[in-house]
Design a protein around this nucleic acid. Structure first.
Lengths: 179, 179
DNA sequence: TATTGTTATACTCTATAACTATA
DNA sequence: TATAGTTATAGAGTATAACAATA
């Protein structure tokens, strides 16, 4: 399963490393004033998976902190927001769109329903399916949450201009649903 | 703690919702051919926290799948990659840069050290600190992993042109370290 | 036979607190 | 007194399998 068959544990030196592959990747990273700290010279800052992971780690921490006074977490907010769209999503659709397991959606809808923010409605055309709709209380909760999330987003994207923010979101939208 | 004091559980209708706020947000989302499924009309597709969460969910799933034959997970790969930079990061620096708790770094370095991929070295200038360096075996493992991660990244960004990919990464870099 | 929601379960990831050795 | 690494522990997030009702 692992590749540790080779007993070669000799250590590489920094000099070897730095001279070995003098690609422009590291030069770009080094000249980028926005990535703080000396580790920003690492090739990782060219890794899209790392960048999205880092951005969402700080972002969702911020979002959860912003929603905390409302007793909401970011995953509940996402369910509530889709429910508020008026699109009458089924739980299965929510799972797929939010990249959650169907069993997780059950728990999230349970919690929102317990708070009186959403309701399960029978689907006319398929009695297996349940459609999630918001209540008036859920609407009000959603509006409050929107304001706080808006502020969090403003903090997250503070380094970017308005057009850059739109650009970033447009690019992210195009890769966010390819799984 | 919660805001469910109001017993108002009357349900809002789709018609109300859709006519209530006819903002351009929904129009943009609707005309975006890249976000699949009817739920892409939801206001969530304008939410940066949602987009980064969605992108990293699919991305890290892809990355973990790509690394699985090497017995690596994406978090171990990130530690290994920074170690390979030749920058001699301390565990504390790794924690901050990778947005991990110091205790998590201990476990990740333990695992990589057990495999003979990295080593802890004493820091000359501060005997509390330990510096993480790669071994030759770790170098080889890293090279193999790089290739697989490169392929995963190529899949993740398939919808984008080369210049768009660079644009996206540059924008992400500017917001990824604001936490 | 396949799918929706559901329950149960386990595994990964993340956050917190306390301890030790150094500074 | 503060900081780096470590240990322990609990909580949040994620993945899988099985089941009942319905298609």
């Amino acid at each position: 399963m692992t590749t540790d068959s080779a007993p070669d544990r000799s250590v590489t030196t920094p000099a070897e490393e730095l001279s070995a592959s003098a690609d422009e990747t590291k030069k770009d990273a080094r000249s980028d004033p926005t990535a703080p700290g000396r580790l920003a010279q690492s090739a990782l800052v060219e890794d899209i998976e790392f960048l999205t992971a880092r951005a969402r780690a700080t972002g969702s921490a911020r979002a959860n902190f912003a929603l905390e006074p409302l007793g909401l977490r970011v995953r509940e907010y996402s369910v509530l927001t889709v429910a508020r769209s008026g699109l009458r999503p089924s739980q299965r659709e929510l799972a797929e769109f939010l990249h959650l397991d169907p069993s997780q959606v059950v728990a999230l809808v349970d919690e929102l329903e317990r708070r009186g923010a959403v309701q399960r409605e029978p689907d006319q055309r398929d009695r297996r399916s349940k459609v999630i709709v918001t209540t008036r209380a859920g609407e009000r909760l959603g509006v409050q949450a929107d304001g706080r999330i808006k502020q969090a987003e403003d903090d997250s994207m503070a380094p970017l201009s308005n057009s850059e923010r739109e650009q970033l979101k447009a690019l992210l939208r195009r890769i966010a649903f390819t799984g």
